[in-house]
């Protein structure tokens, strides 16, 4: 009996909190433009997020969606439909995210989507919500201290990556070893098949923090913006998303989420990426 009481009491208090939350968000939602009917009619937000890119979008040990970008999606659902449950999260990959969006499987992408002219031809971008740069990982005792030091050396990179394009356009004299996966690249670096491994800084920081035999070079290059992707010609929805992003910034939510998802020792990089202006780099 006591047990039942406790449960009922718990349910009641949850209900009360929910009612209060709805009242509050209802009041604040006035700062957002009206939700377009095309989205409203679905009754929930269909969002595409990454599930292998910690701390942005990934699945935790229990298989639940986690990460800063996942929280952003949940926040938009909360503002749009009044409940954090009114969301359908879909795991998207680098290759399939744009087809998933344009095939209407999802209504927006918060999925480490970098702003590029090629992509801008097929989707619309929101305002950028963070930036992301590239860096290089080298052996701890490597003579490479800055970007220019890799001239004439072999750099490991992934086929089709931002970095592969950047090196080809900017430093074509650099010898490249192009592999298919991040684990192949890391393995090859550790076996000395290349002098450095270049990738998104956000990815490399996590590796460097775990592996004391490696070190980040620490010079940013190929810095680009990440933004929310929506389908072309959905101006009202894009305006809503832009307003929601502004509100996240104004309410200081990004810093809160970074604190929640990123271990303290590597946190400053991610906090800067969401809250500081994009650094000037090559």
């Amino acid at each position: 009996m006591t047990h039942l009481h406790a449960t009922r009491l718990g349910a009641l208090s949850t209900l009360a909190t929910a009612a209060l939350m709805t009242a509050i968000s209802g009041a604040q939602a006035q700062s957002l433009p009206p939700l377009p009917d095309s989205i409203k009619s679905a009754g929930l937000l269909k969002a595409g997020v990454r599930c292998d890119q910690p701390p942005y979008g990934y699945k935790d040990e229990t298989g639940k969606f986690a990460g800063v970008e996942t929280d952003m999606a949940i926040q938009i659902a909360t503002w749009a439909f009044g409940s954090a449950d009114k969301i359908e999260l879909t795991c998207v990959t680098a290759e399939n995210r744009i087809p998933q969006l344009n095939g209407k499987k999802v209504d927006l992408l918060i999925a480490t989507l970098g702003v590029t002219p090629e992509r801008a031809r097929v989707v619309d971008f929101s305002k950028p919500y963070r930036w992301g740069g590239s860096d290089m990982l080298v052996a701890k005792d490597s003579p490479i201290k800055k970007l220019d030091d890799v001239a004439g050396k072999t750099v490991i990179m992934l086929k089709g990556s931002t970095q592969a394009k950047w090196f080809e356009d900017t430093m074509p004299k650099v010898e490249s070893l192009r592999l298919n996966t991040a684990s192949d690249a890391l393995q090859s670096l550790k076996q000395g098949r290349g002098d450095a491994y270049t990738h998104d800084a956000a990815t490399l920081i996590v590796i460097a923090a775990k592996d004391p035999s490696l070190r980040l070079v620490g010079e940013s290059f190929a810095v680009s913006d990440a933004a929310v992707g929506v389908r072309k010609n959905e101006a009202a929805w894009l305006a809503y998303v832009d307003a929601a992003l502004d509100r996240m910034k104004a309410e200081g939510l990004y810093a809160k989420w970074v604190d929640k998802w990123v271990p303290a020792d590597i946190r400053p990089f991610y906090t800067d990426a969401f809250t500081k202006p994009k650094p000037t780099a090559r």
Binding site: K159, G160, A164, R178, D184
Partner: peptide, 14 residues
């Protein structure tokens, strides 16, 4: 990562 014929194609396609 050996830059033979198929590698060149896949690399350019990506």
């Amino acid at each position: 990562g050996l830059a033979e014929l198929t590698f060149v194609a896949i690399d350019r396609i990506s």
